[in-house]
């Protein structure tokens, strides 16, 4: 397993090493840079956390990695396949959970997973079998016939995650998979993801819950203002302190302030 570094060598990294390889990704919206040259190696078989404050460029980076957003410059390579020159082949290898994106929520949960499976080219029997398995695994079997629009926020997240798993991808790209998910569902999702990694899959998740990343992931990258500040195994990045303290230190937040003295009762 290669140890990722801040500056990625320009020569090709061996395809066996990286599940996802981002090189010099750049994207700006209306002249404002959102991602400013991010390079990242996600080793195959790793559980990779991408952390950063709001507006750091996490979603933009992951969108460019998954073929949803065309980068201004740079490349994204999934298991040796270039996302932007051979999108169809690259997308077959990936399961994607975008953040802040609508679902086809007039479908029932069962229909949505089936739809995702058929879109990925599964045959009817496989799609039906996997849909049933996923609904059971995510504890949604009782609500399988309910329209997704009537789901709670946590259930919606779970059904979206289930839909991204149905074609058995080798790399999972999850943008904020734990947002507005209750602790029970979060534990459920975590154990499914851990199982997936144990069986050889690779996961990259974005989050701003440091505690969760520290406990769950083996690798982490810190981004802020469109740049990569640190990357490596969790132990390397946190360098002795907790990930949260190290993160605040890297990003440069404020400490406790005296400003709200009137709030002290």
């Amino acid at each position: 397993m290669t140890v990722p570094s801040f500056s990625v060598p320009s020569r090709d990294v061996s395809p066996g090493g990286s599940a996802l390889s981002l090189r010099g990704l750049v994207k700006s919206f209306g002249g404002k840079p959102a991602v400013n040259g991010i390079s990242l190696e996600v080793p195959a078989g790793s559980f990779y956390g991408l952390v950063g404050p709001n507006g750091a460029g996490k979603t933009t980076t992951l969108s460019m990695a998954t073929g949803l957003l065309r980068p201004d410059a740079g490349t994204a390579i999934v298991l040796g396949v270039d996302v932007w020159s051979d999108p169809l082949a690259a997308k077959r290898l990936m399961g994607v959970l975008p953040d802040g994106v609508r679902l086809f929520d007039r479908l029932s949960g069962e229909q949505l997973i089936t739809y995702s499976g058929l879109l990925h080219g599964l045959d009817r029997r496989t799609a039906a079998q996997r849909t049933a398995d996923l609904l059971a695994a995510f504890d949604l079997a009782a609500d399988a016939r309910t329209l997704v629009v009537d789901y709670s926020a946590g259930m919606t997240k779970k059904i979206a995650l289930a839909a991204s798993l149905v074609h058995a991808p080798r790399l999972l790209v999850l943008d904020e998979p734990f947002e507005s998910v209750d602790p029970v569902s979060a534990a459920n999702i975590r154990s499914i993801l851990a199982d997936y990694v144990r069986s050889g899959g690779t996961v990259i998740v974005s989050s701003h819950v440091m505690d969760l990343v520290q406990r769950m992931c083996d690798h982490v990258a810190v981004v802020a203002q469109g740049r990569l500040l640190a990357a490596g195994t969790v132990d390397e990045v946190r360098a002795g302190s907790t990930l949260e303290d190290r993160f605040v230190e890297l990003v440069g937040g404020h400490g406790p302030t005296e400003g709200l003295s009137w709030l002290h009762t």
Partner: peptide
């Protein structure tokens, strides 16, 4: 939640009888 009516919905609807291909699934959806 209007979950009460959910039980009345049966199966996967059009996904069951449209061809099990990407375009068939899109037509069903």
């Amino acid at each position: 939640a209007s979950g009460g009516r959910a039980t009345a919905r049966r199966g996967i609807g059009a996904f069951g009888w449209m061809p099990a291909t990407p375009w068939g699934a899109i037509a069903a959806r």
